[in-house]
Amino acid sequence: MDTSSRADAQARTPAASRRRGAVLERAILDAALDQLSTVGWSGLTMEGVAAGAQTGKAAVYRRWPSKEDLVADALRAGLPPTGPAPDVGTVRDDLLALCIRTRDAMFSRSGLALRSVIHECDTTQADRFHAVIFEGVVEPTLAMLREVIERGVERGEVRRDAANDYVCDAIPAMMMYRSKMCGSEWTDKDLTDMVDQLMVPLLRPETG
């Protein structure tokens, strides 16, 4: 092949096939998240991820020898930043802002991917992702809830013994239960009702 023919062949080669290193790895992780959020854990295949990333299956297996390895890294890479706890001015408004942020994260691409793992994996598989889920989602959410509640205690809006594990678990437990068991999509009204009818009475200081 002469020089001009080689140049023409290279020009026709898709840019995706020439990607290397971090750029290719990011494309593969994004493709895995796309698969998880659309076809779920059961439907995800290494072949499908490779096709979504526009690369060869061998490129995927060189980096991640198993589906579990790939999904764990994809979840780590795709989890949204938690950011600081809301500080709107009242514990009620702070909780509502945090609930809305959590709901939006649940229904984002990475959130749908995470839910497919939680809902579809058996116990053995779920154990593999426990650290990813706990460190990347559960701990930051509980830390923000505790911060909001403790700030409410300081302002006199919240009873002093309310900043405990059971109270902090209430919102995540309710949101996961209603989402998984009842198929709730958590509209703004649903979240407002939960905060006003569950959390505000639960946190309110005793009178008299």
Rank of each mutant, 00 (worst) to 15 (best):
R12F: 04
A143H: 12
R155V: 09
L191V: 05
Q54C: 10
G52I: 05
V148Q: 13
V138M: 14
M106Y: 06
A162Q: 06
R12S: 14
A85T: 02
C168N: 08
A162C: 11
E120N: 05
R115A: 15
R6G: 01
A97G: 06
Y61S: 12
A16L: 00
S184E: 15
T45V: 04
A126D: 11
L70M: 08
E47F: 05
V49C: 05
E154Y: 04
L202T: 07
T192Q: 14
G156T: 12
C99T: 04
A105Y: 07
T45M: 01
F107C: 01
I100V: 12
Y61L: 14
D69P: 00
R128I: 10
L191T: 02
G78A: 10
A143K: 14
D196A: 09
A72V: 10
L142E: 11
E68Y: 00
D69Y: 07
T192Y: 07
I149M: 09
E135A: 01
S66K: 07
A131I: 09
R62F: 10
S179E: 15
V195E: 04
L96R: 03
F129I: 02
A77M: 04
R62A: 05
L33W: 10
L24A: 03
T207I: 08
R204T: 15
R103E: 03
R204H: 12
W41G: 01
D165L: 07
L33R: 13
A113M: 08
G208W: 09
A72N: 06
P14M: 04
L114F: 00
C168K: 07
F134H: 12
C99D: 05
V132G: 05
Q125C: 09
H130P: 00
D30C: 02
C168V: 09
P86Y: 12
A105V: 01
V117F: 12
A72T: 04
A74I: 03
D30N: 11
